[in-house]
């Protein structure tokens, strides 16, 4: 039946092979690309592409997150370090600010008084708890002598009892060996303040008839030639009227907490300063009475 001995099968395949590119060339030339038979393929391709795109995005994101995590970790360590440094600096700044304010107050006090004052820092406390003394970093080399008053802006602290070349020992008004002439500010009655314990003093030899109440301010009397007259010593916390005693026993809380004092002034020359003529710093008094 095959006259020319022609292989139709091969011929059809050959035609198909040649015609398909021709058809495709023809299709390229047409404006409309999306024909009905390409759509499923396009859809499939889109799906696959989207899948891989999201997959690659995911991988990229995860990788970058991981890389970032490593970077963040090191950044975090750096920031933590910076934060610690800043916190330390802030603390230092706050401390400096406080010190500045304290020193400014001291400077103002030094400027506004007639007294000759030597500033000093507290460098030590007493070795034995039975005695209340402090050591300051100024001594005879700086003109300090035995019996000079030691005070702060708020009130009296004590007096020098053992000056050495570069340091001096100060007996606090709370020491049981300490004796200071005192006045009740309100009534002007004289008495003697003696140390009682770490935080208390006692005012003795005040007549029973005197009107003294808790909260009254006790100031220096000035007769001991140590302290200037009228400088705050303490606030009355308790008044005891013993029936058989001619005088009152008055407990005082010192205006200055000597355990917290860091800077003090030593009065080298009182120049007849009288604080009773000046308005008293009541803030310390109020603080204690509250």
């Amino acid at each position: 039946m095959n006259f020319l001995n022609f292989n139709f099968r091969k011929a059809i395949i050959l035609i198909l092979v040649i015609s398909l590119p021709l058809i495709s060339i023809n299709m390229e030339q047409k404006k409309v690309q999306n024909t009905w038979f390409t759509e499923p393929f396009s859809f499939l391709a889109e799906g696959v592409q989207s899948l891989f795109a999201s997959l690659s995005r995911g991988v990229r994101t995860t990788t970058s997150e991981y890389v970032n995590l490593i970077r963040i970790k090191s950044q975090n360590a750096d920031l933590q370090k910076q934060n610690d440094e800043l916190k330390t600096r802030l603390n230092q700044m706050t401390e400096s600010q406080n010190e500045l304010e304290r020193l400014r107050t001291l400077l103002d006090f030094q400027k506004n008084t007639k007294m000759e004052l030597v500033p000093a820092q507290v460098v030590g406390r007493d070795l034995v708890p039975d005695h209340n003394t402090i050591t300051i970093n100024k001594g005879t080399k700086h003109g300090l002598k035995i019996g000079q008053a030691v005070l702060t802006v708020s009130g009296a602290v004590g007096y020098i009892f053992k000056p050495q070349l570069y340091t001096s020992h100060v007996m606090l008004i709370t020491d049981r060996y300490s004796v200071v002439d005192a006045l009740i500010q309100k009534t002007r009655a004289h008495g003697i303040v003696e140390g009682k314990s770490k935080e208390l003093c006692v005012l003795q030899y005040v007549e029973r008839t005197e009107d003294v109440k808790p909260g009254d301010l006790i100031v220096t009397g000035g007769l001991d030639n140590i302290f200037p007259k009228g400088f705050p010593l303490g606030v009355v916390t308790n008044v005891e009227r013993k029936t058989k005693s001619a005088s009152l026993v008055i407990d005082l809380k010192p205006v200055v907490d000597a355990n917290k004092v860091e800077e003090v002034f030593i009065v080298t020359h009182a120049a007849l300063e009288d604080f009773l003529q000046k308005p008293t710093d009541v803030t310390a008094t109020e603080r204690i009475t509250k």
Binding site: G124, D126, L127, V128, D130, H131, T133, F161, K162, Y177
Partner: peptide, 8 residues
């Protein structure tokens, strides 16, 4: 020596 550090 202790008395150098205290009022004792």
């Amino acid at each position: 020596c202790l008395t150098r550090f205290s009022h004792i």
